[in-house]
Amino acid sequence: MGLVAIIGCVKNKALPIPQGVMDGLPIGLGYFAVSFAFGLFAVEGGLSPLTTTLVSLTNLTSAGQFAGVQLIFLHQPLFEIALTTLLINLRYMLMSLSLSQKIAPGTGLIQRLAISYGITDEVYAVAISQPRNLTTRYMLSLMTLPILGWIGGTLSGALTGGILPGSLRSALGISLYAMFVAIIMPTFKKSRPVALVITIAIVLSTLIAQLPVFEMLRGGWQIILATLIASALGAWLAPVQHSEPPQSESNQGGGTDV
C-alpha cells in the first residue's frame, strides 16, 4: 500500500516532510470522503461542480456548508443563511479562543489571519493536543492535507457522482468521529475530572438532540451549550492546578501502529 510506503520513508527520514503534514494526513483522508459526499449532494441539488468547489474553498467546514447549501436550494434570504451558518460555526470561537492560549508568542497578525482560515474541528483537535506551543509553520503544515482533501474530495464528488461504492462511503462516514474518540479517550482514562466533563457533555448533547422540548436548540446550539455547561461545571468543580494544555497520549500521525 502506497500509504504505508510513504509513512515508512518518513520514519526513516528519507523524506523531510514536516511533522504537521504527517499529523494532517488522517484528517485529509477523512475529509476527502466527507467532502466527496458534499460534492455529490450539492451537484444533485443543482449547483455546478465549480460553484460547489468554490463553497468548499471559501468555507472549509462541514456542517455549516451542508446547512448553507440546503438553504440556498430553498432560495432563503441571505439573512437567514447568515444566521443559521453563524450559529453552527459559533463553536469555532471557543476553539479559536482555546488555541489563542497555545499559539507561539510573537505570532503576528497576518500569520494569525492565515491560521484562522484552517481552524476546523479536526485540525483544532490535533493542534490542541500537541505538547508544545503552536508555531505558524506547524499550523500551516497541519492544515495543508485537510484543505487539499476537502477541496479535492468536493471536486471529485461533484464531477464523478456515485463512483465510490455506497458501502465504502457509509463506512468512511465514521472516520472523523473515530478521530475525536481517539483524541479524548486516553485522557478520559487518566483524569477523573476530564471523564466527568466528557460524560456531562455527552448527556447534555444527547438530551438536546432527543428531547422534543429542545427542538429549537438543535444544530448550532446543541454543541455550544453542551460545551459551555460541561466545561464551566468542570472548571467550577475541579479547577485545573497547573493549567497545562490537554495532551493526547496517542501517537498522532506518527504511523507507528500502521
Binding site: 471557543l94 476530564v194 468542570g234 490537554p246
Partner: peptide
Amino acid sequence: HFVRSFLYYVPYAVLASMTVP
C-alpha cells in the same frame, strides 16, 4: 484561574458533544 480551567476542559467537551449522538 476559572477561565483557564474552563478552556482546559473545552476541547474534551466540544469533541464529546460533537461525537455523541
